[in-house]
Simulated assay, not measured.
Amino acid sequence: MADQCCAGKSGATALNDPMWRRILWIALLINGAMFLVEIVAGVAADSRALQADALDFLGDSANYAISLTVAGMAIAWRARAAMLKAATMLAFGLWILGSTIWGFIDGSAPHAETMGMIGVVALAANVAVALMLYRYRTGDANMRSVWICSRNDAIGNLAVMGAALGVFGTGQGWPDLLVAAIMALLAIWGSAEVFRHARRDLTAA
């Protein structure tokens, strides 16, 4: 009960905090730029893990835009927005899973050096965003969904770097595909977590 009260106060404070909106705008710009960088690098390197991470950056950009739109609205509308974001996370996860399965069937030959370099840049971007959003992680479902996306992204970047090492060490593409599958499952799990929190907010509303 105490946690719920604290979460409610944190959410109310954040909604009236110009810093919250400023952080979301910064996160939106960072994610949009990283989408462009990673999608180009992912295609050039034939890395499904990088392409998956690029689409994740694109999805997060849309999520931050939604959060900016509903930040001043009633909690019911913020919860509905969180449900929409949960649905996009689920769709993203299922798309990656399908692409990964196709990669196992069709084969792939990713470029480990490109994966590693872009992975480091993406990790730095996501850690910076996650640190900025950390103070708002216990707000309403909408705020929590933003935090979960950023947290998952940082974990995903570590996995991409691990895949680059795996591809470099084995000379094969399966580490790249394995990481892409893990990222897909992480997105699916995150969507379920956001959806549960949003349902609780809607019930309370």
Rank of each mutant, 00 (worst) to 15 (best):
V179N: 08
G59W: 00
D46F: 01
Y134T: 11
I118T: 06
S10P: 01
R22F: 04
W20V: 00
T170A: 08
A14L: 01
M132Q: 14
G119K: 02
V40I: 09
L29A: 09
D201H: 02
D46V: 03
G139T: 02
V120N: 05
L84P: 04
Q4R: 14
S108H: 06
G98L: 11
P18A: 00
A54H: 02
L158K: 07
G32Q: 01
S108N: 15
I39Q: 01
M115W: 06
G93N: 03
D56H: 05
I66R: 08
I188T: 03
T170W: 08
K9I: 15
A2W: 11
K9V: 14
I30T: 12
L55I: 00
L68G: 12
A205S: 14
V121S: 08
D106G: 12
A44R: 06
A41F: 00
G72Q: 01
G156V: 03
R135I: 07
A192P: 07
A192K: 13
V179D: 04
C6V: 12
A164E: 07
A87L: 14
V179T: 03
A163P: 08
D46A: 07
A122G: 05
A109W: 13
R78M: 02
T69W: 13
A45K: 01
R22H: 11
G156H: 03
G156A: 15
E113G: 09
Y64P: 07
A62R: 02
G59T: 06
C149D: 14
I23K: 01
G173H: 03
V37I: 12
K85H: 06
L185W: 11
F57C: 10
P175A: 04
T138E: 13
S99D: 12
M117G: 04
V129R: 06
L50D: 06
M132Y: 14
A87Y: 12
A91H: 11
W20Y: 05
L131K: 11
W95S: 15
A76T: 15
D140K: 02
L24V: 00
A124V: 12
L165I: 15
A49H: 01
A181K: 03
D56W: 01
G139R: 02
D60A: 10
M83Q: 15
R144C: 03
P175Q: 08
I105C: 10
V146Y: 02
V194R: 00
M34Q: 10
V167D: 05
W174S: 08
G156T: 15
I148M: 08
P110D: 00
R80A: 10
A187W: 03
S145Q: 09
A91E: 07
G107I: 13
S10L: 05
G169S: 13
L24Q: 03
A81V: 05
S10T: 15
D56T: 02
W77E: 15
A141R: 08
M73L: 14
N157L: 07
L15N: 05
I188S: 03
A33E: 06
I101P: 03
V121H: 05
L94P: 02
L178E: 01
A180N: 07
A154V: 09
R196C: 08
D60T: 13
D53K: 03
V70N: 04
E193G: 09
D3S: 11
A33F: 09
V121F: 10
L55Y: 14
G32C: 04
